[in-house]
């Protein structure tokens, strides 16, 4: 069934937003996610480009500066809201799991 855009986040969306709580430029996002997750989550360059563009269009992140071809981004309130919503959803899932096993 089609998912309404960004009502729930995929793992890669979640970590991009998580990283962007601090100002970060494109490639740096990829590296930070790898470090943060011990290389468990990898975001490919094509996926990163597409997600950054979609997040920007949805006003979940905003561009902070452009240095040559490097662009930096930071999360917006709307993005934080989506990140928190996902965090709570994941917690509920953990709670449900724990209370039923």
């Amino acid at each position: 069934m089609p998912r309404e855009k960004f009502q729930t986040l995929t793992e890669q969306m979640y970590y991009i937003l998580l990283v962007l709580r601090e100002e970060c430029y494109g490639m740096d996002i990829m590296t930070r996610i790898q470090l943060m997750t011990n290389e468990r989550v990898i975001v490919g360059p094509g996926t990163l480009y597409n997600l950054l563009e979609q997040f920007e269009q949805a006003q979940m992140i905003r561009e902070t500066k452009v240095e040559g071809r490097k662009r930096s981004y930071i999360i917006t309130d709307m993005g934080l809201e989506a990140l928190q919503r996902e965090y709570h959803r994941l917690n509920r899932m953990i709670f449900d799991y724990e209370s039923h096993t």
Binding site: T10, M30, V43, P45, G46, L51
Partner: peptide, 14 residues
Amino acid sequence: AIPIETDEALKLNS
């Protein structure tokens, strides 16, 4: 090398 596309739904959409 890391695959260029790591989200299959996004890849399909592109």
